[in-house]
Structure formats: C-alpha cells, structure tokens
Simulated scan of single mutants.
Amino acid sequence: MEPGKLLENSELGLRILAGENGLNRKIRNEDVNRPGLALAGFYRNFAHDRLQVFGQGEFAYLLDCGGEVEGRIKDEFFSYEYPALVFTHGNQPPSCFIKKSNETDTPLLQTTLSTHDFILNFNRIITRALAPQTSIHGVLIEVFGLGVLLLGPSGIGKSETALELIERGHRLVADDMVHIRHMGKGELIGESDPMIEHHMELRGIGIVNIKDLFGVGAIRKKVQVDLVVFLEDWKEDKEYDRLGIDEQTMEILDVSIPSITLPLRPGRNIPILVETASMNHRSRRMGFHAARSLSERIHSRISQQITEDAERENPPKKERKKASPKPLMGPV
C-alpha cells in the first residue's frame, strides 16, 4: 500500500504537508512506530520501515528541544527512509521537518484525529490492504448469519439457487466473482468486486440489480466465509455422503473451511438443502453433531444387546448357601 492511498481514505483525515514526490513509497508493515526514543538519540532496533506517528509527546519534545538538539535530530532522523511521517491532533510540524521532508521526498502528513483514533483506523485499513487474498468464481450469500460460498461448474445453477435464497429472506454478498481475504486467525472475509456489486447474472433474463429489486435488506457488503457448498450434477457411479459423520474441508488461503457436496437432480430443492446445511453447520459449531450422536446411540444399543444375549446364553450359576454348623453341645 502507498501513502498516497491513505490520503484517499476519509477515515484517516490526512492531508499532505511536504514530500509529495514520495507518496508512491510502499507501506509493507501493519504496525506503526512512535519515534520518541529515536528523537532522543537512541536508534538501536529502530523500526524505520514502519509508519512514524508523532503524537502529543513527540510533538512536545520537538517544541522544547534547542537548536543543537534540533540540528542533531534533523541530520540523524532523516538519514533513514520512512514510508511516511504523520503528525496527529492537527499539530504543525517544525519548519525543519517540512524542509527535510521535501529534500528527502519523505511524505509528511497531518491529521486532526487523536493518536489513538488514527492508529485504530490505520490498523484496520492496512490489515485489510496487506491481507493475503484470492478471487474465486462462485456466489457468496449470507444464510442464517453464516457466509455460504456456492461453487460449481458454469451453468449448474449457483445464481438461481442464490436468488431463491434471497427470496426466502437471506442476503447476497457477491455473485460470479468473490474476493476473499485472509484477515488472520483463520478468518476469511468475502466480498464482491465493487464494479459488479449487488448485481446478478441470470441466464435468459440478463443482469439484475438485487438491491433495486429486493431492497437493501437483501444485500450485504461482506461476510466471513463459514461453509462451502459444491453443486454438481448427480452421478450414478459416485457414492455420496449419506451420514455426515466425517467432515469435508476445502483449503482457501491455507485455511480449512467445512464443505459439503450437493448433487443436483430433478425434484431436489437445493435452496432448502443449503438452508438445512447452514443450520446443521451452526449446530455443529455449538457442539451438537446429529450424525455422531446417532452413531454413538446405535453403537451403545448394539453393545447393550450383545451383553444381554451373552447373559441369556450363559446365565450365571446360583451359589448354594452353606449350612451353618450345628453346635456340639446344647445350651447349658
């Protein structure tokens, strides 16, 4: 990401003060650096590859330092190359900073935000920009709060299935091209290409705008990808999962996402099956696994039946009661 892109983001409230020729520098680190120690002359392990943020403390130090210290700071500090320098709280940098920024083509930026708010907004924006990403041909729709990615060959009916789900009250995220980003900790966020956002292609009808037809309640900007559903034509020679004990997964950006395969056949209501799969996936995440629970009950009943049959075939022998010995002499 480039500092010039940060200027285009209204959440940061940035404006350029100097060093415009360096706006094409690359920001390759998600973290920021507060250069207080560097201003005081300590440069060991100095993170100069990060965005340098000057808060109230750094700004106050620059105002209080004398001419000799200011000269040292000017020479030593600007011997490093930075992605950009940012002064928060609307503070005006010293004239020496503006001069050296222009000389070294270092972007010098200013924002009216507090240091805390700026860093929060910057971290959110840069994390998204630097996150690993990929694009997948499919349809992403929110079903019962879960992000369901519909995949399958072209013309299999992904868009038609999504349209029926929208009619049933669910929300479209992306059709045809789904952009997916890995935001860390196994979280995959899917969204639409801005150019085709809210639009859907239906063979025989053409391009439709879901927002215009069904309202803003039928769309969503982005959603976490929780489940992948493969749609394919029914193959007589293929054995499909009928129990659901073993879970399938699909690797996307090195993250394993639960997946299922739904074979298409005349008479099968695919939208209802997708809804059921979503509810079943949510139930599993809460710790309730219907297939495994039933399997355990069946195995428990079989074990109990085997034990009962074994007891009937080999009943336990009754032990005879031993007679108590008679006393040798009667009562005196």
Results as ranks from 00 to 15, higher is better:
Pro3His: 04
Glu8Pro: 07
Glu8Gly: 14
Asn9Phe: 03
Glu11Thr: 10
Leu23Tyr: 03
Arg25His: 13
Lys26Cys: 14
Arg28Ile: 09
Arg28His: 08
Arg28Ala: 12
Val32Ala: 06
Pro35Asn: 04
Ala40Ser: 09
Tyr43Arg: 07
Arg44Asn: 07
Asp49Lys: 10
Val53Gly: 00
Phe54Tyr: 11
Phe54Met: 12
Phe59Glu: 08
Tyr61Cys: 01
Leu62Glu: 06
Leu62His: 05
Cys65Ser: 05
Gly67Ser: 15
Glu68Lys: 12
Arg72Ala: 07
Pro83Gln: 07
Pro83Asn: 01
Ala84Gln: 02
Ala84Asn: 03
Leu85Gly: 09
Asn91Arg: 13
Cys96Asn: 07
Asp105Ala: 14
Thr106Phe: 06
Thr112Cys: 10
Thr115Gly: 10
His116Pro: 02
Asp117Leu: 12
Asp117Phe: 09
Asp117Cys: 07
Phe118Thr: 01
Leu120Pro: 00
Asn121Ala: 15
Phe122Cys: 10
Ile126Ala: 09
Thr127His: 15
Pro132Glu: 12
Pro132Val: 11
Thr134Ala: 13
Ser135Tyr: 01
Ile136Phe: 06
Leu149Gln: 07
Leu149Pro: 08
Pro153Ile: 15
Ser159Phe: 02
Glu160Pro: 10
Thr161Gly: 06
Thr161Asn: 08
Glu164Arg: 10
Glu164Tyr: 10
Arg168Cys: 08
His179Ile: 12
Leu188Ala: 04
Leu188Val: 11
Ile189His: 13
Ile189Pro: 02
Glu191Pro: 03
Asp193Cys: 12
Pro194Ile: 15
His198Met: 06
His199Gly: 08
Glu201Ser: 07
Arg203Ile: 07
Ile207Thr: 05
Ile207Ser: 04
Val208Ile: 15
Leu213Gly: 01
Gly215His: 09
Ile219Gly: 00
Arg220Gly: 04
Arg220Pro: 00
Lys221Arg: 12
Val225Pro: 02
Asp226Pro: 02
Leu227Asp: 00
Glu232Trp: 01
Glu232Ala: 02
Glu236Ser: 08
Thr249Gly: 08
Met250Thr: 13
Glu251Pro: 00
Leu253Lys: 03
Leu253Ile: 02
Leu253Asn: 08
Ile257Thr: 06
Pro258Phe: 01
Ile260Val: 13
Ile260Pro: 01
Leu262Gln: 01
Leu264Cys: 10
Gly267Asn: 07
Glu275Thr: 05
Asn280Leu: 03
Met286Pro: 04
Ala291Thr: 02
Arg292Leu: 14
Ser295Phe: 10
Ile306Cys: 05
Ala310Asn: 11
Pro315Lys: 09
Pro316Gln: 14
Lys317His: 09
Glu319His: 09
Ala323Glu: 12
Ser324Val: 14
Pro325Leu: 09
Lys326Asn: 09
Pro327Lys: 13
Leu328Gly: 00
Met329Arg: 12
